[in-house]
Nucleic acid binder design. Structure first.
Lengths: 354, 354
DNA sequence: CTAGAGTGTGGGAGCGCTCCCACACCTGGC
DNA sequence: GCCAGGTGTGGGAGCGCTCCCACACTCTAG
């Protein structure tokens, strides 16, 4: 498609050499009848070039099909024009949720206008964490986006000490020193529980995520706040500790049902947990929503395929991804700028389960 | 965590310079009391180094916290130690299916033992396709994995002309010249339809994917073959053309029901289409599986959450990812080797819908 | 004892860029 | 006429590596 210089190569074809040799900046300069500096200036959009020289260079570039060698540029500028999206994916389940794909969609939408390349890096164990650490230390990216932040994860601290521009999805706590973007988890949870109460539920339980994640704590906090605002007391017997997974949701739901068989509403901190809980409730003969109303969190694809379709708290995940990318780009260009925090609103999507 | 040299920097702190200067190979050589060549040999694991020199170098590396500069290495070797996973994601739906995450899991599992870095690159429109083209032409990766291959996609041809090592997930057709890995789609479809026939279905319909994808054609072919093997004729009225999406499944199912209200089994070329079809069937008052048996394809998370849980053809997606990565690594090391094709078996997971 | 074939090693050259200094060439004001 | 202050330009230096040649040193066979 694009014209490519097909010059006869060296006499020795062998020793694993590439078939085609790419033209260099020097060759462009020679063809355009200018110096290397001028070609470089044209490529980098410097205004200090005469129209005549610029045109000569541009047509030489087109003729040779010249593409700059990024490695050479990186060697000089120590900029890589790429950013990493780091996913500390403990288990495949994390990935089978649309959360990550939506983040990625948002990030790459924001990057579309730039020539930043997005690198996805999965970290699933200690070994991979070390590889990433070496990778980041080697300055192979200009910045890092980190999703799924656990309180005891050493990654954020690593990013801090490396002083590499970075933005988190979520945060470790109130005092998070790194830039971050997250959803209004507490607000969303509160909204969900208020909906259950308004519906007439009087014994509303909750299934939490792993409490070493701020996001899980925030959702539990929203649950508690909604109850207290309604003048109801927070009852530990109605709180089931789980881990965002379907199986975890099933186990916790069974225990909850044992402890408080009279419960009539459940707010689950994730859709897949809610799906697990719904299975258990049905197996126990409860009708949804008549006997027990159920609300999930995420509004993922799972919510649309349960029976009945699930009411769920939607968070603007793609928008989160876009915002993260925007903050990171800013941080890369204006190094040393103040860290930013962004909180995006959540919304209740009402279907049939509550 | 890892020891990092914190030397006082140059007197001039400004002009956007990085805070910490990384040690170079030259400094390691000086500290170890050897030449540059020897350090390079140690780093690259050459056997032609004395034990004494090797140890001196290793401790110097540890002391300085030395990490090689990849850009410099790339400039010389023109190897990048990274590979791209290219996803021509037309719409978000593609991503919300677990297919891609499973591929990614498999690929990175296979890459774990190497120091290859995986780059995920999304291509969603013409503009992004051009960016990718420039990126690949600039030789920024050692190889490419391409998933979701459409017949009219210019990407495979681009990879061919660039002569860059690459492996496809799926293929354009029988004569695919690039290496590829795919599942036994025809066999899986055949298995599914045989299952329906054995169950006693006599009017088995099918919902296809977009027929510009070989994968959709193969599944349709398997459907047809199973019918013919059972001595039944292939009836176009029982074939609903769809596009792998839920909405597409709904629309096609409605049409099918209009045309052939007597159908008693449906093989759907994807789970989400099957989910859409099941909604339509129920709305039309059909019981599943008693009136109409339904089988999906993929065995994705959706299959476990329909009511009733869906029988589906499982393909070993993660294994596909692993195999793709393995083939690509081979192709990168032994350039010019013959293209390879791998077909992995599919399996019928029987649940309640058929 | 010497030629010959290994080993291990240092360091020059060079990968393809950007940075920046020096130099030409133009103005215009005195 | 001169000098100051622009503007555009060429090309040297150097980023941090790998490649490879040359040179010491072995050790063995004749």
């Amino acid at each position: 498609m694009s014209p490519t210089a097909q010059r006869p190569d060296a006499l020795h074809p062998g020793v694993g050499g590439r078939a085609t040799a790419r033209p260099t900046l020097e060759e462009v300069a020679a063809l355009a009848g200018v110096g290397r500096g001028t070609v470089s200036r044209v490529i980098n959009g410097s205004p200090r070039v005469s129209t005549k020289a610029r045109e000569a260079v541009q047509s030489a570039i087109a003729e040779l099909g010249y593409v700059p060698n990024r490695a050479a540029r990186t060697l000089v500028t120590s900029r890589t024009d790429s950013i990493a999206l780091v996913v500390p994916e403990a288990e495949t389940r994390l990935f089978s949720e649309p959360y990550f794909s939506d983040i990625i969609s948002g990030v790459s939408a924001e990057l579309a206008e730039t020539d930043m390349q997005l690198l996805l890096i999965l970290v699933r164990n200690q070994r991979e964490r070390e590889r990433l650490s070496a990778y980041l230390t080697a300055q192979r990216v200009d910045g890092v986006l980190l999703v799924s932040v656990h309180q005891d994860d050493p990654l954020p601290a690593l990013l801090e000490s490396l002083e590499i521009p970075s933005v988190l999805a979520g945060r470790r706590g109130d005092l998070e020193p790194l830039s971050y973007v997250h959803a209004d988890n507490a607000g969303g949870a509160r909204m969900a529980v208020r909906h259950l109460l308004r519906r007439g539920c009087t014994r509303v339980a909750t299934l939490t995520g792993p409490l070493d994640m701020e996001v899980a704590q925030a959702r539990l906090g929203g649950y508690r706040r909604a109850l207290e605002e309604a003048g109801r007391s927070y009852d530990e017997a109605l709180v089931g500790l789980a881990d965002f997974t379907e199986e975890g949701g099933r186990v916790a739901m069974r225990e909850l049902l044992d402890r408080r068989p009279d419960l009539d509403g459940v707010f689950c901190a994730s859709d897949v947990m809610a799906a697990g809980a719904m299975q258990v409730l049905r197996a126990a003969g409860r009708r949804i929503p008549d006997d027990v109303a159920v609300i999930g969190f995420d509004d993922s694809i799972v919510a649309r395929h349960t029976d009945p379709p699930m009411t769920s708290v939607r968070q603007p995940i793609e928008e989160m991804g876009r915002t993260m990318a925007r903050l990171l780009l800013d941080e890369i260009t204006e190094r040393g700028r103040a860290r930013r925090q962004v909180v995006l609103a959540t919304e209740l999507v009402v279907r049939d389960s509550a």
